[in-house]
């Protein structure tokens, strides 16, 4: 691929119109379910629970007919970051305190010790990150930009009654989404235009100030362009009678069907289960076997 090629991939997500049962759910349910499950995964720390969580996400991916290879591609991109995080985790984990609390030591080098508890926490973290990335991939595979917009808008709309600027917020979201491909294309064009004048974007030499200055030929025009487009759009919107969310009607009406309620209930139930499950005894057994 050329030095500039990557930018057209910057559109939101990798939506795959598979037509699975998950695809046909109300967009609000798709979004809420992922948020709720993601929340549960972020809160828990137990290895066994996170392992179950990961299995659950894999199951959902299968239900959504997302090919495993496609899903894992997102994880593969994560590997370098994962490596760094895990290394930091290993170094900064309070191993000594864990030893005092009863965890066996696994390895020692001078004053530095690695406890079993530390390694377990490491693996748990790993599982959590993978599960969350897969969950995000699931969301973007079953919901495209428009679905997400409808979901956000639909969820916030009831709040309009109490004076919350739901429509305005949703509009901010829509407009940001629809400008993404435009700005990505512009960025590519700018890189090419400056490269045509001899700019060399390849190497990260020089002091931080120099390196920042080197991005000006891209950022300044992009910013100016984005602001200009925003102003033009604002004028066009006003010309079409936009006056905020009050008194507006809507073409798209989301209606929850039985299947949607069931799916939402299932998602909430699973999230609650993940939050409630205590498999601490399994971890203790694991330590004992390692010790």
């Amino acid at each position: 691929m050329s030095e500039f090629g990557a930018w057209h991939i910057l559109t939101l997500g990798h939506y795959l119109p598979m037509g699975s049962p998950l695809h046909r759910l109300d967009p609000r349910v798709r979004l809420l379910s992922v948020l709720v499950l993601g929340g549960a995964l972020m809160v828990r720390g137990q290895l066994a629970v996170l392992f179950l969580g990961l299995l659950l996400v894999l199951l959902l991916l299968a239900l959504a007919r997302v090919p495993l290879g496609h899903a894992l591609r997102g994880v593969r991109a994560l590997v370098p970051l994962l490596g760094v995080v895990l290394l930091l985790q290993l170094l900064f984990y309070p191993h000594r305190r864990a030893l005092v609390a009863g965890s066996p030591a696994l390895w020692q080098a001078g004053r530095f010790v690695v406890s079993a508890a530390g390694v377990v926490a490491l693996v748990a973290l790993c599982l959590r990150m993978v599960a969350l990335v897969l969950l995000l991939t699931l969301l973007t595979s079953i919901a495209d930009a428009t679905d997400l917009v409808h979901a956000v808008e639909g969820l916030l709309r009831p709040l309009q009654g109490i004076g919350f600027p739901a429509h305005e917020l949703a509009l901010v979201f829509v407009i940001a989404l629809r400008f993404l491909p435009l700005l990505a294309r512009e960025m590519e064009r700018l890189m090419k235009a400056q490269a045509a004048r001899g700019a060399d974007f390849g190497h990260g030499r020089g002091y931080i100030v120099q390196r920042v200055r080197r991005t000006f030929p891209l950022l300044v025009p992009l910013f100016v362009l984005a602001l200009r487009r925003a102003e033009e759009l604002a004028v066009a919107m006003e010309a079409r009678g936009y006056a905020g969310g009050k008194g507006r009607s809507y073409l798209v009406r989301l209606r929850m069907r039985h299947a949607d309620w069931l799916a939402l209930a299932a998602a909430v139930a699973l999230a609650v289960l993940l939050l409630w499950l205590d498999l601490g005894s399994l971890e203790q057994a694991l330590f004992r076997s390692l010790g």
Partner: peptide
């Protein structure tokens, strides 16, 4: 030398001479 469409959109320096000088400086 290649000039894209609407090349005026690619200017970024504050003053004219600085922008013209960008290429030679690179």
């Amino acid at each position: 030398g290649l000039l894209f469409q609407s090349p005026e959109d690619q200017l970024f320096e504050r003053y004219v001479a600085d922008d013209v000088a960008y290429g030679p400086l690179q």
